[in-house]
Amino acid sequence: MKICVTASTGTIDAQIDPRFGRCAYFVVVDSETMQFEAVPNLASGASGGAGIQAAQAVANKGAKVVLTGDVGPNAFHALSAAGIEIVTGVSGSVKEAVEKFKRGDFKKTGAPTVGDHAGVSKTQR
C-alpha cells in the first residue's frame, strides 16, 4: 500500500512538514518494501487552492493514506472524496511515521484539523 507523508525534504529520513497543502515534498512510501518516491509539492508556493492541488497530486500518485501535521477543510474534503485515509498530528521522520502507521499506532482523523488557509498561518504554533 502506498503511504504519502508530507516532508521538508525528499528523502525517507526527512522530517515531516506539518502543512499538508504547502509542504515541500510528498514522500510516497510503499509500506511493504519501504521503497519510496519523492515528489516535490508544486502547490507549496501556490497562491490559492494549494490544498486541492496538493490533494490532486497525492490522489494521482495512488496513495491510500496521508500522514501529516494538519490538513485544512478543502484538502480534507478532497482527500476523503478520493477515499484516502488521513492521519494528522504526526511528527518525527517519514520512516518513523510509516513504521508507526504499520504498527497501528495512529488513529484516522475524522475532520479537518485547521481552518481555511491554515498553511498560510497557523502551522508552527
Binding site: V114, G115, D116, H117, A118, V120, S121, K122
Partner: peptide
C-alpha cells in the same frame, strides 16, 4: 481581507 484574517 479574508486572506489576512484566516487562521489568526
Amino acid at each position: 481581507v479574508i486572506a489576512s484574517v484566516t487562521g489568526v
